[in-house]
Simulated scan of single mutants.
Amino acid sequence: MATILAIESSCDETSASICKDGEILSNIIATQAVHHKYGGVVPELASRAHQQNVIPVVEDAISTAKINKKDIQAVAFTRGPGLLGSLLVGTSFAKGFALARNLPLIEVNHMHAHILAHFIDDPRPEFPFLCLTVSGGHTQIVLVRDYFDMEIVGETNDDAAGEAFDKTAKILGLPYPGGPLVDKLAREGNASAFSFPEPQIPGLNFSFSGLKTSILYFVRDKKKADPDFLKNNMTDICASVQHRIVTILLKKLKQAARQYHVSHVAIAGGVSANSGLRQYLQDMAAEENWQVYIPAFQYCTDNAAMIAIAGYYKYLRGDFTGQDISPLARMNF
């Protein structure tokens, strides 16, 4: 068995985790407030913040886990996909830490890790299961046959669901990060107040670019007719947009479950923290007789615990990498 240090630095959160024999002992996350005034993540600023945060975060993770550096037997890290500069910081730290202590390195695919986050706590999914992975950069339906036997059976043709939430927030004048604010306001609104189009995409793939455009034109036209439209209808707009995004996601998920005859269904990624998605999924599960798996909030957004658990399963099968490894902004699934 093993004690593993894991590093996550794919975007704008620096995170470190300690995993011992498959149990997460610590999961420390440092967020980056520097991006708020720009309305989105600035890659150069993100990589600089990772440089400032990585050592304190790792020290905090080790301290919280109540272990010593000498107890660590392997180092796992996010190789990709993500922002190249951000990935470079985490990869370089992991390589340096491992080299100084002659420890094996474990590279982890960020998207695999989101799915394997379901194996941190009980209840754990049974194979095979479908995982709807939704974030700011990805929207995928993945057929998971084993820990490392995964197949993308549906994905977005253009923009991700998380990006649609964030773009909506920006159109509505909400501060960054806007997705959680849309969710919060939607809880107070009427999801049937306004109607937004559903993309007609064949198969199991998604598209959100057209929906974003329709929201932009809707707000523009309403504001022309009534300058106070947003102020008077903010919660209803958020609820209606959230309803459309979630129904698009779950319609395809239902189609996939029926197509592959799978009754165990999971969600993962930052958007899996959305309360609307969680509630609609539970409602659909009751209708379709699914067994549903929803991760704890702390394991939905980018975090090192998911890298640690993925690293643990790779450690068990001796899947290590060398010091010549480089990060990848785009990484094959």
Rank of each mutant, 00 (worst) to 15 (best):
S92I: 02
D283T: 06
E44K: 13
L204E: 09
I294L: 06
I245P: 09
H50G: 05
S192D: 15
F129N: 00
P104E: 00
A30L: 05
D221R: 09
F148S: 09
N190C: 01
A16P: 05
A100I: 15
H118C: 02
E198C: 13
S26V: 11
L281P: 12
I28A: 01
G90L: 06
Y260F: 14
G136W: 05
A256E: 09
K224M: 13
L211F: 15
E198T: 15
E288V: 10
V57F: 01
I215A: 08
G178V: 10
P104N: 03
Y315H: 15
Y313V: 02
S192Q: 14
M111V: 06
D319R: 02
E198Y: 15
G137R: 04
K170Q: 11
T247V: 14
P199V: 01
T31D: 09
H261R: 12
A46G: 13
S195E: 15
C300Q: 14
A273L: 08
P295A: 08
L83C: 06
G85Q: 06
L249Q: 00
V142Q: 01
K69V: 14
K69M: 08
P295Q: 03
R187L: 08
G82V: 03
A257V: 02
Q73P: 00
S135K: 04
Q51E: 07
G276C: 05
A30F: 09
K251R: 11
I115F: 12
F297V: 14
A117C: 11
I309K: 01
K254Y: 10
E288K: 11
A16N: 12
I106T: 03
M234Q: 12
R317G: 03
I215W: 09
V54P: 10
D221A: 13
